[in-house]
Design a protein around this nucleic acid. Structure first.
Lengths: 205, 205, 205, 205
DNA sequence: AATGAATGAGGTTTCATTCAT
DNA sequence: AATGAATGAAACCTCATTCAT
C-alpha cells in the first residue's frame, strides 16, 4: 500500500511558486496580484536589495502571505523576471503581426522593450548579470522569446535588411548589455544611444 | 502627496576613503600591498560577495589592518576599480605609442582589456551597473581613461578607419555592456562575440 | 536578590480544551474522527514536530476544521495521549480478566503496550518527558490506568510473583523510561532489552 | 600552483566548534567560558527551548560572539552534552581509583551523576531522546564513558556483586530512562526511586 | 460548519564594522 | 600599528493561530 500523501516530516523544498495548481481562490488571486504589484514596484526601485518585508508592506499584506505565494525571495524575483520576459515575448508576437518593414519593426520592438526595462531596476540587474540563479530559472521564457525573435530576424533577413549573421541570442546578449547601461549611474552614459548604436550595427553593411 | 509607505531603499551615505596623502611607513606600505593583492584575488573570484574577513585572510593580515587602510568595504572596492581603470589607461597610453593601423590598435586594446576584465568578477559587477557608489567614486580615473581613449579615436578618425560619430564615452558604455555578458551565466552568451560585434560596429560603413 | 536577567523560559498559559460535552452532529463527529486518524498518523510519525497543516492535510480537512475541534495544537496532542492511555487501560482491564499466572499477565501487558508505544513517536516524546503541559492534562486517564495497574499488581502480589514494594506508579515511571529508549537513536540501545530488564526486576528476589 | 587558502566563495559549513585550533587568545577564552557558563544556565533551565539571544544575554556578550564560538545552536548544545559526558567519565575514572566494594562504588557513581543530571534540563532532554543529531555528535564522549563504565562493571563482576549480564550500554540506556523521569512533571514520579530500583536490579539475584 | 488564505511574532544566522589587547 | 574577537542591526523564513469567504 503506497501512502497517498508524502512524508510530512520532510520539509519540502519548493523553488517555484505553486505551479500546476488548481485555480486560486478569488481572494488569493487578488492578493497574489497585490503582491506582484508591490514586488514589481519595490524591486523596480531597489533591485535585489529589496526586502521581503518591504514587498509585504507595499502590497499591504503580511510577510507570511508573500511566502505562501512565493516560497523564497528568489522565487519571487524569478516570477518577476519571467513576467517581464513574457511581456517581451508578447510584444514580439505583436510585432510579428505588424506590416511594416521587417527590420524597422524589430528595431521598434527593441526600443519599446528597452523602455519598459528602463523602469525596472530588478530585471535590469538580473539581465546585467547579477542573480544567475534567477536567470537560469527563467530559461523557458527566455527560449520562447528567442524563438519569436528568431522569426522576426528571419523575416528581416528575407528582405535583406538585417546583417546576415545576426542571431536571436546576439540580440538577447546585446540587450543585456543595454541593461548594464541602464543600471549605470555613470555620467554620459545613455542607454538610448547604446541601443541605437546596436540597432545600427544590426543593419547590413 | 505624502507617500503612504516610506522609501524602502535607504541610500547609505558613504564618506570618501582615507585620502590623507602622507607617505606611509615602509611596513605599512608593504601591508597595503598585501591587502590589495588579497583583495584583488578575492574580489576577482567572488565579486562583491567577498567578505572583508576573506580579504584579510587571503592577505595574511587581520581585518583591523584592512580597515586601517580602507575605512569601508566600499572604499576598498573603489580602490580596486580605480586600479583597473588605471591599468586600462596605461594600456591605452601604450597603444598610443604603437605604430599599427589606428583602428586595429584600438580594437586590440579593447580585446586585451576585456580579457583582463573577464578575470575579475568584482570589476565586472561594477561596470555592469552594480555598485553605483563605487563607480561614481572612480570618476577621476574614468576621465583619464576617456581622455586617452579619445586620443586613440581621434587618431583612427584621421585615417578614416572608425565611424565618424564614435566617442570615448560610447566605448566605455559599450564595454560596460560586455561586462554584463561576462557576468552572465546565460547559455549561448559569449562576450567575445559581443565584443567583436561592437568592434565591427565601430568601423565606418 | 533580584536576578539581573529576566527569566528566559516563558511558560505559556494554556486554556483547557473545548470540553463542552454536547453531542456532535453526525458530520462533525465524522470529521473529528478523520482529524484524530490523521493526527494519530502524523504525530506517530513526526512527534511534536508535526505541523497542524500536516494534520489537516492527512485528515483531508482544512486547518480551520482542526481548530474547530481542538483549539490548540496542545489540546490535540493531549487528546492523542489520552486516547493512548485509555487504550492501555483497556488492555489492562482485559488482562484483569485473563486467567494466566498474574505476573506473566502483567509482563505480557507491558510488552504489548510497549509495542504500541514504539509505533508512536508523539506519545513517546510526551512520556519521555517532553511536553509537560500535555502530560499534566491527561491526569484523569493516568489515574485510571494506575488504578487498573494496581489491581494487576495486587493479584500478582497475592501469588507472591511480584516484588513486594512495586507500585503502579513505579511501573508507569519505568515505562516512561522505556519511552526514552524508544525515542533514542543511540546505537546499541534496545528498548526490548530495557523492558526485559525491568520486568525481571519486578520479580521477587 | 595550488592556492594556499581554500575557496572563499564557498560558505564553509562547520558543525563543530573550532576544534584543532591554535590556543585561544586570553579574552576569547574568557568569553568562551562565559558563553558556556551562560549556556549551561540557560539550557539547564529551559532545555532546548532556550534561545541563542538568551544565551548571549546571560553570558553578557553579543549574539555574534556566541556564533563565533559555536557556529550553530546545535553545536553549542553538543558542546554542553559533551561536557557533561566528560564530567561523567571523569567521575567514573575517580570511582575506578576508589577502594570500596565495587558494586557500591558503581551505585554511588550512578547516584552522583544522576544528581548532576537532575539540574540540567538540556542534557536531560537529549538523554531522554530528543535531539538525536546532538546525541550522535557526542559519540566519542559516549564511548569513553562506556569504556570506563565497562571497567567498573568488570571489577564488580569479579567480586560477583553485579548481575552477570549487565553491560555498560545497559547502564547508559537505563540512565537515559532516568532522565525521562527527571524531565517529567508527573506527580508521583521520583527519579531517585527510579534509580534505586535500577541499582537494585543490577545486583545479582 | 468548513475552508484554506492570511497573519506576524519570533527564531536563527550573517557580516560590515568597532575596539580591547 | 596590528590583531582578531566582539558587536548587533538586519535579513530571511516558519508555523501556530485567526478570520474572511
Amino acid at each position: 500500500m503506497i501512502p497517498l500523501v508524502k512524508d510530512p516530516c520532510e520539509k519540502t523544498v519548493t523553488t517555484s511558486p505553486n505551479q500546476s495548481e488548481r485555480p486560486l481562490r478569488a481572494d488569493a488571486r487578488r492578493n497574489r496580484e497585490r503582491i506582484l504589484t508591490g514586488a514589481r514596484a519595490v524591486f523596480a526601485e531597489c533591485g535585489s536589495d529589496a526586502q521581503m518585508d518591504d514587498v509585504a508592506r507595499r502590497a499591504g499584506v503580511g510577510v507570511g502571505t508573500v511566502y505562501r505565494h512565493y516560497p523564497t525571495k528568489e522565487a519571487l524575483m524569478v516570477e518577476l523576471v519571467r513576467e517581464k520576459l513574457k511581456r517581451f515575448t508578447a510584444e514580439a508576437r505583436d510585432a510579428l503581426e505588424r506590416d511594416g518593414e521587417p527590420f524597422e519593426v524589430l528595431a521598434d520592438l527593441l526600443r519599446a522593450n528597452a523602455e519598459a526595462l528602463a523602469r525596472d531596476a530588478g530585471t535590469q540587474q538580473v539581465l546585467a548579470g547579477a542573480g544567475e540563479h534567477i536567470w537560469t530559472q527563467a530559461a523557458a521564457e527566455q527560449n520562447e522569446l528567442l524563438d519569436v525573435t528568431s522569426q522576426l530576424i528571419d523575416r528581416a533577413r528575407r528582405t535583406g535588411t538585417i546583417r546576415a549573421d545576426a542571431t536571436a541570442t546576439d540580440i538577447a546578449m546585446l540587450t543585456c548589455g543595454v541593461s548594464a547601461t541602464m543600471a549605470h549611474p555613470a555620467s554620459g552614459f545613455d542607454w538610448r544611444r547604446h541601443l541605437d548604436l546596436l540597432i545600427d550595427m544590426l543593419r547590413p553593411r
